[in-house]
Design a protein around this nucleic acid. Structure first.
Lengths: 203, 203
DNA sequence: TCTTCATGTTGTCACTGACAACATCGCGAT
DNA sequence: ATCGCGATGTTGTCAGTGACAACATGAAGA
């Protein structure tokens, strides 16, 4: 045996991501992963306590990347806090469409219940980013009467739900990404005005 | 052996629902179910081809009950189509809170991908009910420019996402049901006006 | 009564996650 | 230089699980 894979941990995470993208989370097996990488069936155990632990690590990575994507999208959106929060919503959907494996793993109930510390930290960082943007939009007049954290949680859930619909519903299957993103934009606009100006015109 | 359980099929579904409510879908095992009911490990196979088949049957039942709940909620809401659609949104959340096992199983990705004919029929009936209500609201002026099916799908996803947040987020854990339903109402109001009158005042 | 079919039983297989005991590699202290 | 030790990987094994096949039982109708 050649032994010595070197970076088995990241190789496992990579392979897991592609397996999940192709066949879904249920099809993921530690032993199959080990076989795919030409390594013994117990080798994954050195890096991940169990299957849930691997999924948690993958989900943490997904949250970190989503957070990073949101930050660049926010700065690209300019100064208007309402437009920024709207852009965040769109980016949640765009990122999900770009990275279906991360979407699946972060949204999977089995993983959501899991309380790995590094996963919880990544989740919290993601929530903090969204909450800060929601607070800025609220500060300039968007939904001033609602509880901030509730606004954050429910708008995030709505955006992720929309992403799920766009990925799973046959109505949208096979449509080009650009079209899906356009639809995503309209959906986000239902909840968050596209700009401060639009918000002021509403009422 | 006493043999002859009589109605093993519905006993399996019942027991499965309580197991799911208590320990989650992942904890569900056909063999454990058989043990719980004092029946041999292969007996469930007579009624459900495999684990996914049992989950599909449970999900179909969930969709049927949700649809029934929506219909009674709609008639109770009176004649205003906007108020009716708003009430439907609230009832989606209320039903989910009342029946967490059905919620979990209908929303679980593993089950959502499944294409059991009776499950698909139940899903379609649910979708038809929501779409009819959305169409009525649209006919009196709600979001007239949006695609009807998209409106239906995304508003359903938003309501279900809100239900998920209310059930899973620690922020809402342990709060009395009445309070959760009040929050649910505010969330629905973010997307669907509470009445035709409110809709007309918006713009 | 006899047959037939639905329902349940026993037996078995491959696969999986999990654990324990052992092997090897590389690196840092002596 | 080497010694020792911790990190990483290996082989071996166990119980739980889903799935299937072959058989048993009981009820209902020809």
């Amino acid at each position: 045996m050649t032994y010595h894979h070197g970076n088995l941990r990241s190789a496992l995470l990579d392979r897991a991501a592609t397996v999940i993208a192709e066949e879904g989370i249920e099809a993921l097996s530690l032993r199959a992963l080990a076989r795919d990488l030409g390594v013994s069936h117990a080798a994954p155990g050195r890096h991940f306590k169990d299957r849930a632990d691997l999924l948690a690590a993958l989900a943490a990575e997904g949250h970190r990347r989503m957070t990073a994507a949101l930050n660049t999208a926010a700065t690209a959106a300019g100064d208007d806090p309402v437009a920024r929060y709207n852009a965040l919503g769109r980016e949640v959907i765009a990122f999900s469409l770009r990275h279906p494996a991360y979407f699946q793993v972060t949204q999977h109930p089995e993983v959501e219940r899991h309380s790995d510390p590094s996963l919880m930290a990544a989740r919290q960082a993601f929530g903090d980013t969204v909450r800060a943007a929601a607070a800025a939009a609220q500060a300039v007049g968007w939904r001033p009467d609602e509880d901030l954290e509730a606004l954050q949680l429910f708008s995030t859930a709505a955006a992720l739900g929309a992403a799920s619909v766009l990925m799973r519903q046959s109505k949208f299957a096979g449509r080009p990404t650009a079209e899906l993103l356009a639809i995503a934009g309209r959906v986000i606009d239902l909840v968050i005005p596209p700009s401060l100006e639009a918000l002021r015109q509403e009422s």
